[in-house]
Simulated assay, not measured.
Amino acid sequence: MKLHVTAARDGRTWFVESAQIDGLTTQARTVAEIPEMVRDLAAMITGRPESDFDVEITFDAPEVAAHLRQAEDLAAKADALRAESARERHEAAMVLKRQGVTVRDIGAVLGVSHQRAQQLVSN
């Protein structure tokens, strides 16, 4: 059973609860402790074995969430820029190839190995 829990930090403790199982509320000192503690408590409440529970944690940290969203946006932009950079490097290699420049010289001009230059003109 996929067991969804929410963890919120208060001082030095993570407070954990689940809406799926009535009374499933616990606390942990570290994030690493949460799944084991939740499985143990869920097993006690339901009478099912701990192995029946696959714990999925959602962190209630609004201040952190905004930073994480920004980081994800920036990572997506960085990925797009890397792809664009690769296309431009390929185009530069192709211009040199059409001019009859050797693969070794293409590599030297682009600042890459001749093996990488070969890959660029082959794609």
Rank of each mutant, 00 (worst) to 15 (best):
K2D: 00
K2I: 00
L3P: 00
H4P: 04
A7Q: 03
A8T: 14
A8S: 14
R9Q: 10
D10V: 09
D10K: 12
G11E: 07
F15Y: 14
V16H: 06
E17C: 15
S18W: 00
Q20H: 03
L24M: 08
T26R: 02
T26F: 04
R29M: 15
T30M: 07
E33D: 12
I34C: 03
I34G: 01
E36N: 10
E36I: 05
E36Y: 07
V38C: 02
R39K: 06
D40K: 08
D40N: 08
D40E: 12
L41T: 01
L41K: 01
L41A: 03
A42G: 00
A42Y: 00
A42W: 00
A43Q: 02
M44E: 13
M44Q: 13
M44A: 14
G47P: 00
G47L: 01
R48E: 03
S51Y: 01
D52R: 00
D54Y: 01
F59W: 05
A61V: 08
A61H: 08
P62G: 06
A65K: 10
R69D: 12
A71D: 04
E72C: 05
E72K: 11
K77C: 06
A78K: 09
A78T: 08
A80F: 09
A80N: 07
L81K: 11
A83D: 15
E84R: 07
A86E: 11
R87I: 13
E88N: 09
H90E: 15
M94N: 07
M94T: 06
V95L: 12
K97M: 15
G100S: 11
G100Y: 04
V101F: 05
T102N: 09
T102C: 09
V103R: 05
V103T: 13
R104C: 11
G107M: 10
A108P: 07
V109S: 11
V109A: 15
L110Q: 07
L110A: 06
G111E: 05
S113I: 04
H114E: 14
A117S: 08
N123A: 14
